[in-house]
Design a protein around this nucleic acid. Sequence first.
DNA 1: CTGTTTCTTGAACTTAATTCAAGAACCGAG
DNA 2: CTCGGTTCTTGAATTAAGTTCAAGAAACAG
Lengths: 204, 204
Amino acid sequence: MPKTPIRKNATGAGRDSRGNERRRLIFRSLHDCIIRKGYVKTTLADIAEGAGMSASHLLYYFKGKETILEQYFEAVSIRFLERITEFGTEPPGKRIHLIADFWFKGETSTKMEIGFMLECFGAAVHDDVLRITKAEFDLQCKGLLSEIFEASPADFIKNPKDAAEAAYAMMIGLRSAVYFDDGIDLDGAHRLFVNTLNRMCGLD
Amino acid sequence: MPKTPIRKNATGAGRDSRGNERRRLIFRSLHDCIIRKGYVKTTLADIAEGAGMSASHLLYYFKGKETILEQYFEAVSIRFLERITEFGTEPPGKRIHLIADFWFKGETSTKMEIGFMLECFGAAVHDDVLRITKAEFDLQCKGLLSEIFEASPADFIKNPKDAAEAAYAMMIGLRSAVYFDDGIDLDGAHRLFVNTLNRMCGLD
DNA sequence: CTGTTTCTTGAACTTAATTCAAGAACCGAG
DNA sequence: CTCGGTTCTTGAATTAAGTTCAAGAAACAG
């Protein structure tokens, strides 16, 4: 006589608010672990310890180790999108500097997260779930940048969409180069980026 | 009475030539596995099966699973460097197209390897061995590109090194965007890249 | 206070990486 | 050819990590 459990709290509000707090703790611990040893070498026990709970309890909230990664990645993507979207409200001349600062002068955690996203993208090649998230992220960034550059057409590249794509690619490219090479001149890269964008947009 | 084993073949030539053949088999199998399921999901048994030997035998040649990855990555980097270096002997107007073709029109395996390298770079953040290899690769590519662009100074960016760096970053950036997003227009990206480089170099 | 739902854990199970000891294959010297 | 040493190869044992599960604690509504 197994009764079908009836959910009193149909919206799941109570559970989810608590669950979300736990999730955040887990994400933060994952984040720390990745900074210290990278994702591959991070064990469930490591994450659990950092979050102050048992390893098996992690799996009460997440289906498996990779699911934690996926959902954390998704959360990070969303935060990035939000921040990048904010730039769209700034005047053209200012946007470029804000975007550049965002990519080059962020806190350590931002730097880590960008590197982490690239790490995820690598993993994502063979994972449909992550792939979709990445494609989504990519698409939206590009759309936004197109918009930004549309507003101040450059004479360097006739089609502003090309400029936007080029800038986006350059941004990702430079940023990853910076992340993966401690020897690189961060300030130099930053100047180069700003100058290039300015020139592209005829704001030089 | 364990005698200290005396190596007859002090140069290791015989052993190494055989060993290198085995290594190549293992690399090829790793390569195939990564195409099919990605590095993380590839097991030693998978690699061993593809190479026609036992899993434990892999560890006779390599210290551990990650060592196989590291050394394969190193081999790929070297091959890339060699191919890119060849472009340096071509005349300026032709180099750009050759490089662009190399990045955008390579065979599937090239595409896979670029993605794989990015995947490695992600892993490399927490690994000193890979890191050095990447830095080396990076440095040499940049040096070469500087050289290439030095020969045909652009009026777009006054300092040709800036142009080289921008082009390099763009190349990596675009290429990774292409790799990680099946929906992207490969030909369009290729055209954009060639056009942009041409304009940068005043060859338009 | 009581029954239901949610939370939490440790122990058991499963899978993959790594170590190890033993023996097969190879090879040069006598 | 055959003996002794060296290199190659493997399966079995060990270790470590991920996952499942059943049981009990905590929270909470009625």
